[in-house]
Design a protein around this nucleic acid. Structure first.
Lengths: 348, 348
DNA sequence: CCGAGTGATGTTAACGATCACTTTGGTTAT
DNA sequence: ATAACCAAAGTGATCGTTAACATCACTCGG
């Protein structure tokens, strides 16, 4: 206890078992070419010394890679969190180790900063490119080690097919579905409270939520109101949505995610607007809390976990092309209709 | 591109710059004993080759440690997430690298499984011991490498003082404060919907939420109803709380966290019980969404981020005792009164 | 009875960095 | 002029592990 005795190495085990270190290595890695008696001796020594292999040394020595680093910023959102779970599960089932490194959204990381997150050059990496820091990180890794990276984000089928390092879902399609549903309910038009990545520097891709929304309105020959930009937090959303809430001609708001939707619901309640009578609100992501708000939020469910799984499979293929390339799949979004949406109350 | 050309090593840089590998090492690590001209040559070579030091090799060679691994299970709860942010910030500001390894709550990890999470024996580790898998992990690490671990969890001042590897907050005290508040509002007694760790195998510590609640009721001479055990999910909480909702004599429920509180609020609404008229509900943790539900949740705020920071400082002390031992501090819990609590409606 | 094959081990050389020394020159004090 | 010193740079060992190759003792077929 007072003596922080150093951890046993493969050599200590070898000495105690009376064999060479290489034989110990063979036992540890389950090589078949070890006599049963020897194996037992070694295992005994391992147990006695409490030996555990040093993963750093192992991968330095060029052993199998079997480790992924996930770069993510905001893991408090349900989508990324679920995708992460998918990656974890897929990786664990193959005995890969998974490390997560969190990018600070406030901080603007320099390129070196981002690269320094990786334990070594060429470390297999999955990037959650759903927000600004993630998209930055994607660019940096793309320039640095494109062969050992995969990014998750909102992309169309074409984009996915064109870029061998992308995995994602077509958020635009999902937004289109939600918008069409609101139109079908009889709303004149649908307003949009947009997450930061749908607008500004990084936004504008056809697979983005705002794009799917606008496209659908145009196709239906409706007026396309300006999308209202919001920050990621409840407080920012609450503030940003006020003009929409105050405007009685607004009867339906599609929100960029469920957090924005909850803030909108709250704002509507405080302003005395009835939901869904005066105003329909639709969220995005099917975050667990949405089923338990009052009224319960209508939202769009997407299978993030399977996207995470797909990202891991693709990474495995890219790192070692003997692994099969998973066929790109975009899980179909599913609209979950609950209590915050319905037909507009007919004007008197 | 086709050629996944190997990453440049320190030797490649040395050769290109016409110096020894050791000089390159000096430049990279900012040693003062390098001539300016040499430094420039080396930096140029580094830039040209896109060299980045291999962290694995570096820590193998016995360089400064400067890396923490955080073991956590459920990071979707606000508390752990905020604590993690605290660790991240503290670590980054000293240029330590942080890896997170997620324990699967469903899976019962074997001891080796948990240990295998660490990149090497002796890796400095912080464990989020707020749930079952975390508590398991704490035990395992305690047996394996107590000198390089710190655990975060609910502990009393005495427990914290006695165990040099613990950091935490006195949840019992916080629960006591919330319970006293409800009693002061005039409620006969207060019921408790408990998180799994407050009951069962791991529960029962004096710093646990359920304990603070029961203690306060006893001290006030009130009847102490059985705590109602709940799982972690909304669905489990919703189901578990039904008997309390159905019982009209129940006028106040203290919930083990904000998720349970939201489920309780939803259940009360569906059962037609008015909140806070018929029923007061108090949550725990001040999860961001609590300010935006309708009615907004009364809850207990705790400064998780500073606990995370404290954990990192303590770990630094334990790994290298020349670093000062941070004085244990338990940030004071703060009751945030919003709209789900108040005096009971007087019986007619 | 001998050479080839084979299964179980040992030996040596990386891997990419740091650490503890050693060497090389040029100043400075005596 | 010479010892002493110092800054700048190099050399070799080392960290814990795996890969590649070498060795050794058997067994087996001809």
């Amino acid at each position: 206890m007072a003596q922080p005795k150093k951890a046993a190495s493969i050599w200590d085990v070898a000495r105690l078992a009376g064999v060479s270190h290489q034989t110990v290595s063979r036992v540890v890695n389950g090589s078949p070419r070890v006599a049963a008696a020897t194996r037992d001796k070694v295992l005994e020594a391992i147990a006695e010394l409490g030996y555990r292999p040093n993963r750093l040394a192992r991968s330095l020595a060029g052993g199998a890679v079997e480790s992924v680093t996930v770069l993510a910023a905001d893991t408090s959102l349900y989508g990324p969190e679920a995708a992460l779970r998918g990656i974890e599960k897929a990786a664990r089932s193959l005995d890969w180790s998974v490390q997560i490194s969190v990018l600070d959204p406030a901080d603007t990381h320099s390129d070196e900063d981002i690269i320094a997150r990786l334990p070594r050059a060429g470390e297999p990496t999955i990037i959650m490119a759903h927000d600004e820091p993630g998209m930055r990180a994607k660019q940096v890794l793309l320039d640095t080690q494109p062969q050992a990276m995969v990014a998750i984000g909102p992309y169309t089928a074409e984009e996915l097919a064109a870029s061998p390092w992308l995995v994602g879902m077509d958020d635009g399609k999902a937004a289109a579905e939600a918008t069409r549903y609101l139109l079908d309910q009889g709303h004149e038009t649908v307003h949009h409270l947009a997450i930061p990545t749908s607008t500004g520097t990084f936004g504008g891709g056809k697979a983005h939520r705002a794009d799917g929304w606008a496209r659908t309105l145009r196709e239906a020959g409706r007026e396309v109101p300006d999308a209202v930009p919001s920050g990621w937090t409840f407080a920012e959303a609450f503030k940003a949505v006020q003009p929409l809430i105050a405007d009685p001609s607004v009867t339906a708001i599609l929100c960029g995610n469920d957090h924005l939707a909850l803030a909108t619901l709250r704002a509507a309640h405080l302003a005395g607007r009835d939901v869904p009578g005066d105003l329909s609100i639709v969220g995005f992501d099917n975050t667990p809390f949405t089923a338990y708000t009052t009224p319960a939020l209508t939202t769009v469910n997407q299978d993030f976990e399977s996207v995470g799984r797909g990202a891991f499979e693709l990474l495995r293929h890219r790192v070692d092309s003997t692994n099969p390339r998973p066929k790109p799949s975009w899980p179909d979004p599913e609209l979950i209709i609950r209590e915050t949406s319905g037909p507009p109350r007919s004007r008197s």
